[in-house]
Computed example of a mutant assay.
Amino acid sequence: MTRWSPQPAPDEPDGLILFDGVCVFCSRWVRFVIDHDPEQRFRFLPIQSEAGRALATRYGIDPEAPQTNAVVWGGLIHFKSDAALTVLGALPKTRALAALKAAPRLLRDPAYDLIAKNRYAIFGRTDACMVPSAEDRARFLA
Rank of each mutant, 00 (worst) to 15 (best):
T57L: 06
A65Y: 03
A116K: 05
F32Q: 06
Y120E: 03
T94H: 09
V71L: 07
T2V: 11
V72S: 00
G52D: 04
K80Q: 15
F79V: 01
R139S: 12
L141P: 04
A56C: 00
P10F: 02
L85K: 08
I115Y: 01
K101T: 09
D109T: 10
T86K: 14
W73M: 13
A51N: 08
A128L: 03
A134G: 06
Q48C: 06
R3G: 11
W29C: 01
A83G: 02
M1Y: 13
A103H: 01
D37I: 13
L97Q: 09
A111L: 15
V24F: 03
R105Y: 10
A111F: 15
H36Q: 14
L76W: 14
N69Y: 00
K93G: 13
K93A: 15
Q7P: 04
L85G: 12
I34P: 05
W4T: 00
M130C: 09
S133G: 15
P6Q: 15
P63H: 08
I17T: 00
P10Y: 05
R28C: 13
T57G: 00
N118I: 09
R125W: 00
Y112N: 07
D136Q: 02
A134Y: 03
L91M: 13
I77D: 11
Y120C: 00
T94L: 08
A138G: 08
A102T: 13
L107V: 10
A103F: 07
A116V: 02
A83M: 06
F32T: 01
I34Y: 08
F32I: 03
I61V: 15
P10V: 05
S133N: 08
E64N: 15
L114C: 07
Q67T: 13
L55T: 01
G60E: 07
V72A: 02
L91G: 12
R125G: 05
C23P: 06
Q7V: 13
E50W: 01
V24G: 01
K80M: 13
K93P: 03
L100K: 08
Y112C: 01
E39K: 10
E39M: 05
T94G: 07
L97R: 12
T57P: 00
A103R: 09
A128S: 07
T2L: 14
A121P: 09
R41D: 14
P63A: 07
A134C: 04
N118W: 14
S49H: 12
D136F: 01
L141K: 02
D62S: 04
R95G: 09
V33A: 05
